[in-house]
Amino acid sequence: MAYTYFPGCCMHGFARHCQDSLYAVFNALGLELRELKDWNCCGATSYIAVDEYQAFTLAARNLALAEQAGLEVVAPCNACFMVLKKAQDYLARYSNLRERIEAALARGGLQYSGTVQVRHPLEIVIEKIGIKALREKVKRPLKGWNVAPYYGCLLTRPYTLRNGMTLEAFDQLIPALGANLVDFELKDRCCGGSLTGTIEEVGDRLVYILLHEAKRHNADVLVTVCPLCQLNVETHQKQFIRRDREDVNIPVPYFTQLIGLALGIPEKDLGLDRLLVPLDRVLEEHPAELRAAA
């Protein structure tokens, strides 16, 4: 199964460990990723605050390029994922918007027809591989790990997932890897990622609430599905550990890093060493189970 891969800016930047693990896991699962040629930034949530037409043009250009390949598009960042889906939705719903965007795309010889499907890699793993098959592929079960899932906002808002998939279905990934699922009400509440670096005090508070609630539920690990959430929760955690000497210390790996570990993919291929809050402590506390099964 092959997919067009839309990395988004962060996967080439601060989130290269997410990308490394994504490639490694998809490869191990027999899923091929082909990077979209000449992709551009999706516009995220910032561009639309200046000009909405240009913002939709950015997203539509990627979609138009992807249409040429004819494969489903995998966007591993929640923001890219949502922005591309939103562009599709709005271009379908607002004809005046669509006319304007189509005219702009035509300048570059591109055509947009709205046929391409935008998918999150988590959807692909659950849908194409399935919980059962994944469980069978696990070589090093994450025994004893208490893992809380953190999905962030934009995976399920404002658009629901395809084919009736729910976050509860995604939760099942964690026990499939041999870990204990820590269910957690804040799993789709905002981490304040888009306020990182702008209104820091407020962004801090959201991360703080999130981590405290995870800790209250005895989570060892908070697993994310979005590189922006990953960065935000990790860096802020470092900040208030340093500033307030408050030791929450919960590693925040990207979900393919965890899958990769359980599949027995070498740690260096998963970019574990690039995490600011390393998984070492969890690995040390539950090493026997991890290695013994290997």
């Binding site: 949530t45 906002c153 934009l154 808002r157 509440r189 990622g193 888009s194 306020l195 959201l206």
Partner: peptide, 8 residues
């Protein structure tokens, strides 16, 4: 400026 686009 506080809106973080979480769509809740």
């Amino acid at each position: 400026w506080l809106c973080a686009s979480c769509y809740e």
